[in-house]
C-alpha cells in the first residue's frame, strides 16, 4: 500500500481536568494508531473520555500530555484535513441546505462552491434539496446534510461523534449502510465514537474499547475484512459476545448453548 494521507496517531496521551481543585484524570496513557483509510470505532460507556479524545483529534482541545499526530505532524488546532459530524446535525437554521454544505468553503469562488455542494449533496442522496431549510428535513436527512458538509472540505480524516445517536433504530441502520458506502467511495480514514456495539461491529475494521475513570484502552478488536457484514451471522454474534464480556454484560451461558 502506498503512503496514503490520513494516518492519525495518539501516543502516550493523558489528560487531566481540574474539578473543584481536585485533579480528575480523563484519559490515561492512550496509544492508538488509526491507519490511513481505515474505519475505526471507539466504543465505551459515557464518561470514558471518548468525546474528549475526539476533541483532541479535532484540535479543539490542545492542553494534554503526550502526542496527537496526523501524518507525523502535531495537531495544533482545527484544520481542513479533518471533518466532523456531531451527534446533533448542527446545521444552521437560517441557512439553506446548500449554504450549510458550503459552510467551510469560503475561500472558493461561487462556481467552485456550487460544484462541490452539488457533488456532495448528490453523494448523500439529497440532490435538489439545496434550497430547503434544515427545519424542513427529517433527522436522517439533516444528518446526511451534516455529512455532506463535513466531506465537502475533502478531509483526509472524518471524525464522527455518535453521528447516528439521535436517530430512530431503522433510520440508524440505513444510515450505517450509507456511512459504509461513503467510506468505501471516499477512501478516507473514519474515526467514530459510539456506544452502539452493533454499529461499531457493522462498520469498523478495528474497535477500540475504552473504560472509564480514568479513560483507558481496555481492548482492541480487529474485525475480519469481509463486507458488507451480516448482522445475523454467527461471526457477528461472537464478536458482539466478546465485546459484551468486556463490559461485564456477557451471558453466563455462551449463546451457542443457550439456543
Amino acid at each position: 500500500m502506498s503512503v496514503a494521507k490520513g494516518t492519525l496517531e495518539i501516543r502516550n496521551l493523558s489528560k487531566t481536568y481540574v474539578v473543584d481543585n481536585n485533579p480528575l484524570q480523563i484519559l490515561k496513557n492512550i496509544n492508538i494508531t488509526f491507519p490511513a483509510g481505515a474505519f475505526v470505532s471507539i466504543l465505551g460507556s459515557s464518561g470514558c473520555g471518548k468525546t474528549t479524545l475526539l476533541r483532541i483529534m479535532l484540535g479543539l482541545e490542545t492542553s494534554y500530555d503526550g502526542d496527537a499526530l496526523i501524518d507525523g505532524e502535531k495537531i495544533e488546532g482545527p484544520g481542513s484535513n479533518r471533518g466532523i459530524v456531531f451527534q446533533d446535525h448542527r446545521l444552521l437554521p437560517w441557512l439553506t441546505v446548500g449554504e450549510n454544505v458550503a459552510f467551510g468553503l469560503d475561500k472558493l469562488n461561487r462556481k467552485a462552491k456550487k460544484l462541490l455542494v452539488d457533488e456532495h449533496l448528490k453523494l448523500v442522496g439529497l440532490s435538489g434539496f439545496e434550497g430547503a431549510y434544515p427545519a424542513q428535513l427529517s433527522g436522517g436527512m439533516a444528518q446526511r446534510v451534516a455529512i455532506a458538509r463535513a466531506l465537502s472540505n475533502k478531509p483526509e480524516i472524518l471524525l464522527l461523534d455518535e453521528p447516528l445517536g439521535a436517530l430512530d433504530a431503522l433510520t440508524r441502520m440505513y444510515m450505517q449502510k450509507e456511512l459504509e458506502r461513503l467510506w468505501e467511495l471516499e477512501k478516507i480514514t473514519m474515526i467514530m465514537v459510539t456506544h452502539d456495539i452493533d454499529e461499531a461491529i457493522y462498520l469498523s475494521d478495528k474497535i477500540i474499547i475504552m473504560s472509564s475513570r480514568p479513560g483507558i484502552i481496555n481492548k482492541i478488536i480487529n474485525i475480519p475484512a469481509t463486507r458488507p457484514r451480516d448482522r445475523a451471522s454467527s461471526e457477528f454474534m461472537q464478536i458482539k459476545a466478546e465485546i459484551l464480556n468486556e463490559f461485564h454484560l456477557g451471558s453466563e451461558y455462551p449463546f451457542a448453548y443457550a439456543i
Partner: peptide, 21 residues
C-alpha cells in the same frame, strides 16, 4: 455554544464569526 464549537472547527473568528454566526 455548539455553534461556537462548529465555528472554531471551520475557522470562523472575529468579525466573520459575529457577522455570520
Amino acid at each position: 455554544k455548539e455553534y461556537f464549537e462548529l465555528s472554531s472547527v471551520y475557522g470562523y473568528k472575529g468579525l466573520k464569526l459575529i457577522r455570520r454566526i
